[in-house]
Design a protein around this nucleic acid. Structure first.
Lengths: 225, 225
DNA sequence: GAATTATCGAGAAATATTTCTCCTTTCCGC
DNA sequence: GCGGAAAGGAGAAATATTTCTCGATAATTC
């Protein structure tokens, strides 16, 4: 039996979880406009989804709506944010202060979404000691000690792909529980460690594929007419 | 009408397409190590996937393997790259030269993956005229004209989320066919325009959710023992 | 040269996810 | 209050995706 990276125990459907943040954007917009309640039909229409799908997703968070009324906006926002754990922020370490690492360190929005990058590390001595968006870049040697001392659960990998596995090993050894992997490298980690891949290449592949299909469809229509 | 046309009309399963780039990483590693053939079993083992799944994904690209041997590495790489359209690069425009936009402009790897960002635009006059990774930042006014003149199909949106819809409208009006959307804003576009969302927030949500589940599972096990 | 074994291919089965259908609830106008 | 319309809830149906099973094939070993 091949070792599975994902523990397929009881957890929420991942596609649903991924949609939740987009609901939040719309809901906060509603709140800003002074709306008190919102129906899943409205949400679905705005996001071009099926209303039932939205209802199912929202039900995951434990909220119940009222027929003919909808969901109370404030409660719904709170419910989703609680479900996603965005209320109590988790601290994370980032490894690899290149272009992307710097960009991530600059996203102040993460903090509103439950993630605080508290320290950055790099193997390049030239980068160590510099300051990026208010955080000093630390040497890799300090990583293990600090992970333990600060009870860090999340590691963010933004190093060149060849170094990714090595960094992952170091993070796991230090006691990290989840890795946000921005390289395309397929990381090998012990069971129980969560790896979420955020590399852009798969998304680019999907874009290419869909664009190709769209252009072909358009071409065909043009020839039929 | 050739059968290939029909097969492209029914677009490939997106999850499969997203996995293809990860196969490529492994395959190129194999090639570098001097391997000539590789079996889907090996690929599957390395990526912690089911062998049959890998076989089905590879079959999408039209390659046929040999029993007891596997797939010829070079041919397989070529087959996947052709399928993904990584051989003939498409030109793209990027709008929004903030942290992320700059980071994307700095990724030279995109070119090996069929994407060349040929120009960058920004609404901020302070940024217009500056140079980022060798490309001059142009004013938004020039966008429409250049999209048409250069036959650009792909637009990349890396602006603040509030400006995203407006930029998308401008891109669509200019004649763009696909949008790579790095904001969490749900874009409204006419039918036939492809929108691929690459915002990190859904991935972060998935990470949080899975980490939470993993920690709970671990806790549960600990209490059982 | 035959047996053995690893691998691919195809289609069936299983699972996950999304959509549909019907029913209940609640508000609004009368 | 009462009936109708609109909205959400629950579970079934449909669809998409993944996994399983079995048969065929080709290299390796004896």
């Amino acid at each position: 039996m091949p070792a599975t990276l994902e523990s397929t125990l009881v957890s929420a459907p991942l596609p649903s979880v991924r949609r939740l943040p987009r609901y939040l954007v719309f809901l906060k917009e509603c709140r800003n406009l002074g709306r008190v309640v919102v129906s899943c039909t409205h949400i679905a229409e705005y996001l071009a989804l099926d209303p039932t799908l939205v209802r199912k997703d929202l039900a995951l968070t434990g909220i119940v709506g009222k027929p003919r009324i909808g969901y109370p906006v404030d409660e719904l926002i709170a419910s989703i944010e609680t479900f996603l754990g965005w209320n109590n922020t988790s601290d994370a370490f980032l490894v690899g202060v290149g272009h992307l690492g710097k960009a991530l360190l600059g996203f102040r929005e993460f903090e509103a979404r439950g993630l605080r990058i508290v320290a950055a590390f790099d193997a390049d001595p030239a980068r160590v000691g510099t300051s990026v968006h208010g955080r000093e870049v630390l040497p890799m040697e300090k990583l293990a000690n600090l992970v333990e001392r600060m009870h860090i659960h999340i590691g963010i990998i933004t190093v060149p792909r060849d170094a990714a596995q090595q960094v992952a090993d170091a993070l796991v050894k230090a006691g990290i529980r989840a890795i946000w992997n921005f390289t395309i490298t397929s990381l090998h980690v012990p069971e129980g460690i969560v790896v979420e891949n955020a590399d852009l290449t798969p998304s680019l592949a999907a874009l290419s594929s869909r664009l190709k299909a769209a252009l072909e469809t358009a071409e065909e229509r043009r020839m039929l007419v």
